[in-house]
Amino acid sequence: MNERVNDEPASVSLTDQAYAVLRDRLVMLEIKPGEPINEDRLRTELGVGRTPIREALKRLEQERLVVAYPRRGTFATDVNISDLSHISEVRRTLEPLAASAAAERATAQDRAALTELRSQLETAARPGDNTALLRDDVGVHRAIYRCVHNPFLEDTLISYDNLATRIWCVFLPRLSGMAGHVDEHVPLLTAIVDGDGKKAGELASQHVIGFERAIRALI
């Protein structure tokens, strides 16, 4: 299920492709906090020109995933645990809103996709692999956000989920119960598929609160 993190459609532009790859590497800390971004290496690796890389980096800077310094270059942003309360404050409001809206607005095709995703979660074998679990978590969130059918809200949700995931990654080696956190998505997906907006909102709220508690227990 790991491939779900980078879930951009095949028809996207070169800039979008570069953005998606870089975004997920930054989110999962495959590019370490504070690490310089080597544009020449990325161009060779991704097979794109200078412009797509630079346009992608501009978007990532707006999303607080990279920072550019004059005459020094571009670097992955640091992960500041002190940001947890601010990020969680936003997510406690937006995640329930998104889940409730998804339950109400999801198309028949959306519901079929979420049903398939739920089946994958129920049958996935990933014992002790917190990284795979976290990728599953990100993939489920993005699938739900798509069902809201509001591109402005979807972009905002993804941005804050990305920042929250980076905090997860810092503590990943020390986290226990990650499988349970991801499995919470099964009843959430069921509520959305069934069109139960109230229950979906409540479950999403519990999920975000549980994330913050799990991290605070390790600080």
Rank of each mutant, 00 (worst) to 15 (best):
A68P: 09
A106D: 03
Q206E: 00
D24H: 13
E89A: 10
A103C: 04
L188E: 02
D129C: 07
R72E: 06
G139F: 06
L153W: 02
L97G: 05
A18D: 13
R23W: 13
T156Y: 11
E63V: 12
P70C: 14
T15Q: 15
P127K: 06
G210D: 01
D183F: 09
R43K: 11
R142Y: 10
L134V: 10
A18C: 10
L117D: 01
V140S: 00
E212A: 08
I209N: 03
R118Q: 13
D183V: 01
K198C: 03
R142F: 08
A125Q: 15
G201Y: 03
E63H: 13
G73T: 14
D7C: 03
A68C: 12
L84W: 11
D40A: 13
H181I: 04
R4I: 04
S119P: 12
N150A: 02
Y69R: 15
L94N: 10
V90Y: 13
G177L: 05
I215D: 00
I87Y: 04
N162A: 09
Q17S: 13
F75C: 15
F152R: 14
P9A: 01
W168I: 05
A102S: 09
L188K: 05
P52H: 08
R54E: 00
Q62E: 14
L163Y: 09
I209Y: 03
L117K: 06
L188G: 04
Y19I: 04
H86N: 02
G128V: 14
Q109I: 06
P151K: 01
R174S: 08
R23L: 12
L65V: 07
H86Q: 09
G128W: 14
T131L: 13
P9T: 01
I192Q: 12
D129T: 11
I209E: 02
Y145W: 05
E8C: 12
D137K: 10
N38K: 14
T15K: 15
A214S: 00
L172V: 10
I167N: 00
S82L: 15
T107R: 06
I158E: 11
G195F: 01
L121T: 04
F171L: 06
H185M: 04
F152S: 05
A124L: 13
A106N: 05
D7N: 12
E8G: 14
V5N: 10
E63Q: 14
S205R: 15
L29C: 06
S88D: 05
L94A: 10
T165R: 05
I31T: 11
L29R: 07
H185N: 07
P187M: 03
V48L: 06
L163D: 09
Y69I: 13
D83R: 11
A132H: 15
N2C: 01
A214G: 00
A101C: 11
I219W: 05
E184P: 04
K58T: 09
Q120F: 10
R4G: 01
S159N: 12
S85P: 15
G139H: 08
D194C: 02
I144R: 00
E45D: 00
